[in-house]
């Protein structure tokens, strides 16, 4: 999992498939999501897994209209392809990434 910031966000998502997990330290469901993402990142090798703290990087959250966390956005070459809102299971995440 890569930690994204406003400063490196565009660079990091610009090439290939990147899954960004929008989260915050105070959000229980986000903390539940973390180990599921960690485990899945080991299985899905062609996607880069990244996280973004919405409190430290509010501008990015606003830019992508993130209004609920956890929100997962899949980017391909910098473009949003899919998003999922709320805690999902390992199997649901695998389906989402297909």
């Amino acid at each position: 999992m890569i930690e994204l910031k406003s400063s490196n966000f565009n660079d990091e998502i610009s090439k290939g498939k990147v899954l960004v997990d929008f989260n915050a330290t105070w959000c229980g469901p986000c903390k539940m999501m973390a180990p599921i993402l960690e485990a899945t990142s080991g299985e899905v090798k062609d996607i880069k897994f990244a996280g973004l703290d919405i409190d430290d990087n509010e501008d990015i959250a606003i830019k992508y209209n993130v209004m609920s966390i956890p929100t997962l956005i899949l980017f391909v070459d910098g473009k949003e392809i899919k998003r999922s809102v709320g805690l999902i299971s390992h199997d649901e995440l695998i389906d989402f990434l297909k």
Binding site: A24, G28, S68, V85
Partner: peptide
């Protein structure tokens, strides 16, 4: 849901 509709004020209130 997640675009203005929420079921959890403590999760999403700060947006």
């Amino acid at each position: 849901t997640g675009h203005g509709v929420s079921y959890c004020a403590s999760c999403d209130g700060s947006f």
